[in-house]
Design a protein around this nucleic acid. Structure first.
Lengths: 242, 242
DNA sequence: AATTATTGTCACCATGGAGTGACTTGTCAA
DNA sequence: TTGACAAGTCACTCCATGGTGACAATAATT
């Protein structure tokens, strides 16, 4: 017992210190500065421990990636209150709100922005894993939205997938660039004002694509697909079923 | 005379070889691999020449940046035929066409994509210069579009700047990511189909923001601003004045 | 032909990173 | 108390890179 002592020679404690050092280095100098020496120096330990405990830099980064969660969870994006089919704004409002939460997440997670920036120029096991998580959650989110608004998932993807890709990708790019540059096409990326303008612009754009004028869904009331339960059970509390 | 001989010891020729080697290295291994040794090895010359002729890596990269033009010129984006105020589609069609040309440029300029990716993680004289060129041309493009559709430039920027920033940034992100990853939100970034879908999505989005229903411009027919000539004279042939 | 300037080559140093083997020291169990 | 094992330290090799000085070879100039 007492395995969680505050011993001086504590493997778990040093493991944690090392992982935290990874985060510290990335926050301070970016992913490009990550290395065995840098991390060891920042953690105040000998680099040989990185090899002993993690099998090298790659293992350490994997561990780091597993610990921290660098992407939103579908449940958080869908958390109520969120505009639904009954609300006046309908689908455009909902999509705009989803995008706003996406943006909010990005802007409050600097480490995620580092990951996004890193993925631009690096290609390895880790970036592949990151990408896979993001893609999986994005698609799952779309399925939930399709269900929420009674679309066939395939229909929904065809209709709104590319548009949401464009807007989401734009948010990624602008948020990541906002770390370094101030303006993009005249928009101030480091001020809340700029981001508010982007969000309202996105809202107006989405009204165009998903507004009442362009809403030919529910054409077949008793189509076989779009079951009566959410696409999968990963939602904590069933999400939107009221 | 005969300064352009095919001598064996030709300073200009070696200078060119070195600059071309920069391009080759970036194309093959990305900006991250750029270095004095790498370039010298790729050019088949001694690295000391880089210091002699360019004063070091920084000078070489500057020269490289000056030579190559890594961003579209406003004139090319505005080249006729381009939808104008008289055409049925009007402003949305025009903006969609502009975005399509932006995308086309990106997809046909891999080096530009490398620059974009590089700018995400690096911050130095060069990236600052790149950014400045882009920003200047983007704003100038917007001014031209405002003039073309008889908007007050400030109005136009307020109304469409953020939306165009979002869409343009999305294109940048997706094009740059398309070098490495295949799918984003279900869209295939390495197939023409995927990009066509993105372009039509953008078009539909723009109809929402700039379509006839949301076109309260020209409210003041004799407003003082929006002069009768294009914002500046950098257009080759005066551009759109018919 | 001799001089001079410049192109290009070679050898070298310093630095910093990745990775490893041998050592010391603290902790736990017998 | 003692021995064994694990935690942590030290010292080192190897390698790639940035950067520089000295030298050889060739072209232009006189």
């Amino acid at each position: 017992m007492g395995s969680t002592n505050t011993r001086k020679r504590d493997r778990e404690a040093t493991r944690l210190r090392i992982i935290e050092a990874v985060e510290a280095v990335i926050s301070r100098k970016g992913f490009g500065a990550i290395g065995v020496n840098t991390v060891a120096r920042s953690a105040g330990i000998d680099k040989v421990l990185i090899y002993r405990y993690f099998g090298g830099l790659e293992g350490l980064l994997t561990e780091f990636a597993v610990q921290g969660d660098f992407w939103w969870r579908v449940e958080d994006i869908l958390e109520e209150p969120l505009p639904g089919p009954g609300d006046p704004g309908g689908l455009p409002d909902c999509l705009a709100a989803v995008l706003a939460r996406h943006i909010s997440f990005l802007r409050s997670h600097p480490l995620t922005l580092e990951v996004i920036a890193w993925e631009m120029s690096e290609r390895n096991e880790l970036t592949r894993a990151f990408e896979q998580v993001r893609e999986e959650r994005s698609l799952r989110l779309m399925d939930h939205l399709a269900f929420r608004f009674d679309y066939d998932p395939g229909d929904f993807t065809d209709r709104f997938g590319p548009a949401l890709a464009l807007l989401g990708a734009g948010a990624n790019y602008l948020a990541a660039q906002g770390r370094q540059i101030a303006h993009f096409n005249g928009v101030d990326l480091q001020a809340d004002r700029g981001w508010e303008a982007l969000e309202t612009a996105a809202h107006r754009l989405l009204i165009g694509i998903a507004g009442p004028a362009t809403l030919p869904h529910r054409t077949d009331p008793n189509r076989p697909s779009a079951s009566t339960q959410p696409p999968n059970q990963t939602l904590r509390n069933g999400g939107h079923q009221s």
